[in-house]
Design a protein around this nucleic acid. Structure first.
Lengths: 245, 245
DNA sequence: CGTTAGTTTGACGGCACTCAAAAGTTGTGG
DNA sequence: CCACAACTTTTGAGTGCCGTCAAACTAACG
């Protein structure tokens, strides 16, 4: 990959940037890393210019070259099957890393696309692997990130019915977006209901019905993509209520 | 953890063993590692004596101390929710590693129990972390294993209907058990149908109906836990046929 | 041989999918 | 600013898969 200080392999303008000054640094690279570590990370991280909505970061099948960090906006990963059906695999919000799906066999298994105008950082896998050898804390953090990713994957499966899965989803997104908003339990969903439905394994119609019901019963308030969690306790009950058996 | 050469924290007799002579070494620690690496791994790996079916390797909430490798038999991981409902998270067959779920936050999120008389190796996380710093190939392999685990998690979610999920499951298990059997596409399931159903998110009754239908249509042959994949091509169609939309 | 746990089979009901159409929202050009 | 098109979201009616409940059946074990 012939990336230099002025262009990336993806045709997006690139600027060097000090990770030490990034407001998201604690989230991205863990608060445990010292100042000198951040300087070293700075040397290998590149920042993309602003990307429009729908910009493709990488495609399934691409050779694995880099790990990405969402800086602003949001990124969706998805697969396209042989039959042309698309499945949303996950959403990545500011401060979150993506690309680890390709560690083995060094080829991306997902497509990654921006859902809105976004910016991202990226760092070549080769560089970060080498740096890991010098910074044990970083190596641990990579494992932590993958581990967290592993546990998140459980989420979409949790819940026997649609209402439960939506409740879990709302809690998850709220927690991840909390930094962005002043008042808690109120936020804007960066993705369409169609994508949420796909991600949670049901249809847009069902998604719409569930949201309507939650609003009708006063648990949440919805206006377009803006969501307010009104009765957090009740939503928690809905999310956690197990298999009725 | 006060493990020494003769006893483990779990009350199971322990023996030092040379990884270099283990028939599963390529599967466990990747074929890429040289002889000297295997000797170093040998120094930190401990082997359990034979454990009976139902033996608990670790519990959810336990402090994360070690990574385990199934040597013979099989291990199931599962969670127990506050309401007492149990969910099967995965099955681990000979040559497979487990315990990575606890890298963060250094506490196990699952319970792990043997499904049949089994043996396992284990290695303290502290030791292997340190060894990773000296053996870059090992560090990469740890990431590979976690990455593979990540992709496996998709599996249980794949498939809109029960038949499809079962087909995928059978393919997956067959591939992982292939080493154990002379003739391909024929194997014994190490787990009950109840556990499979739980893992795939439906009821034992549905599981039973699906298996019956697959047998009636001549796609597979089932006797108790023994399974033969008769029409592999057809089973592949069933597994891969996407969302009808 | 009796007990127990696991598996199979059947009847019934509900949740979510399908099909269809209306209503609301976004973007574009006149 | 309005008109129109394209898309997303909502709502309704009908159907089917799978969950639920219940009971019969089959190993496995003492």
């Amino acid at each position: 990959m012939g990336a230099n200080a002025n262009s990336s392999a993806h045709g997006v303008p690139v600027f060097g940037l000090a990770c030490g000054f990034c407001p998201l640094r604690d989230w991205c690279w863990s608060a445990g890393l010292g100042e000198s570590a951040l300087v070293q990370i700075h040397d290998i991280v590149r920042r993309s210019g602003s990307m429009p909505a729908g910009h493709q970061l990488f495609c399934a099948g691409d050779h694995f070259t880099a790990i990405y960090a969402v800086r602003s906006g949001s990124v969706m990963t998805y697969t396209t099957t042989v039959n042309g059906y698309q499945h949303v695999h996950g959403f990545h919000l500011p401060g979150e890393l993506l690309g680890f799906d390709a560690v083995y066999p060094e080829r991306h298994r997902f497509n990654a696309v921006t859902l809105e105008p976004s910016t991202a950082c990226f760092v070549s896998y080769r560089d970060i692997s080498e740096l890991c050898r010098r910074l044990p804390g970083l190596q641990t953090h990579i494992l932590v990130v993958m581990s967290r990713e592993l546990s998140r994957q459980q989420l979409c499966a949790v819940g026997s019915d649609a209402t439960q899965r939506v409740a879990n989803f709302l809690f998850d997104v709220e927690a991840r977006l909390r930094r962005k908003y002043d008042s808690a339990f109120e936020f804007d969903l960066p993705m369409s209901r169609e994508y949420i439905a796909n991600y949670l394994h049901f249809t847009p119609e069902t998604m719409s019905r569930v949201m309507a019901k939650l609003q009708r019963t006063g648990v949440i308030s919805v206006d377009r993509r803006h969501v307010r969690l009104l009765d957090v306790a009740r939503l928690g009950q809905i999310a956690q209520s197990d298999h009725p058996a």
